[in-house]
């Protein structure tokens, strides 16, 4: 509002009011900054491609639209301040003294600005094995959480991703049914504590909405003869090809990959599955 901002430099004001007006000016600038930096942060995730680490791609457009709207709001506020300043309006510095809030307005703006600056500097990372363990990777083969929203049996077994396999096994749990099917999956390495040394797990996080609900899924890989899992560092990304077979792990019969080839790969641009 025009009337809310007053000019700090207009000469004929009593000192008290002038000080107040100047405080108001900076406060409004803080608003503009907070809005602008928030927008910049969202733009950065949008064009830097890191948005996929935070959100399900279906909702990227929401964040992208927010980036645009926040930018427009910031511009609008800046224009208002500019207009008020150049018009030398000394109208009531009432501001929103009528508006008593839980947090003082300045503090709110400052918090928002700080968080946005942090978001602008900090590069989000994909979740890794430690989080997977924290979130209960060991339970994923008897998955309770991932009810398939759609269920289609991939035409060929080697096209299935880790989550496709898990969903399949949840629907039809008999491991022998998959004996000998080809597997070709990518994921990061976890060394579950209670597994013998010749097993590792390739896993992925699955999102339904955003990183907050990411849950880990994984498939056991039975390493052949001499190779030990220590050869494959935790959190490194592997592409594993081989055949499915039935093994007994954790006292339970379950599918495991008998690999024919294990290659180290780069972390994919989009590390999650959906």
């Amino acid at each position: 509002m025009r009337s809310r901002s007053s000019n700090s430099s207009s000469p004929p004001q009593p000192p008290r009011q002038s000080r107040r007006g100047s405080g108001l000016f900076w406060r409004e600038m803080l608003d503009v900054l907070a809005l602008g930096v928030w927008s910049a942060m969202l733009f950065r995730y949008w064009f830097g491609g890191k948005l996929l680490l935070l959100l399900h791609p279906n909702y990227a457009w929401l964040s992208n639209s927010a980036a645009i709207i926040l930018a427009l709001l910031a511009l609008y506020r800046a224009w208002q301040i500019f207009r008020a300043t150049s018009a030398s309006r000394s109208a009531s510095a009432s501001a929103d003294s009528a508006h008593v809030t839980l947090l003082p307005g300045n503090l709110s703006s400052a918090i928002l600005l700080t968080v946005a600056i942090f978001g602008l500097i900090y590069t989000p990372r994909a979740f890794a094995s430690q989080t997977a363990v924290q979130r209960g990777i060991s339970e994923t083969l008897s998955l309770t959480r991932a009810r398939p929203q759609r269920f289609e049996r991939a035409a060929t077994p080697e096209e299935r991703s880790i989550i496709d396999w898990i969903r399949l096994v949840n629907v039809y749990p008999e491991p022998d049914a998959y004996e000998g099917e080809s597997v070709d999956v990518k994921g990061f390495v976890i060394h579950p504590d209670n597994w013998p040394d010749n097993y590792l797990m390739v896993s992925r996080f699955v999102l339904t909405c955003c990183a907050a609900d990411a849950y880990p899924v994984g498939l056991p890989v039975k390493l052949t003869d001499a190779a030990a899992r220590a050869d494959y560092a935790v959190d490194s990304w592997l592409s594993v090809t081989g055949q499915m077979q039935t093994e007994t792990l954790d006292g339970r019969r379950q599918i495991a990959i008998a690999p024919t080839a294990i290659r180290a790969v780069e972390e994919p641009r989009n590390p999650y599955e959906y």
Binding site: W38, L42, L54, S65, A66
Partner: peptide, 24 residues
């Protein structure tokens, strides 16, 4: 350190997902 990264990523993810709805 990993924990910290996870925490920050979670924090940002919640914010980035929620802010559009807050705007609406």
């Amino acid at each position: 350190m990993v924990q910290l990264n996870t925490g920050f990523t979670l924090f940002l993810s919640l914010l980035v997902e929620a802010v559009p709805f807050l705007l609406i």
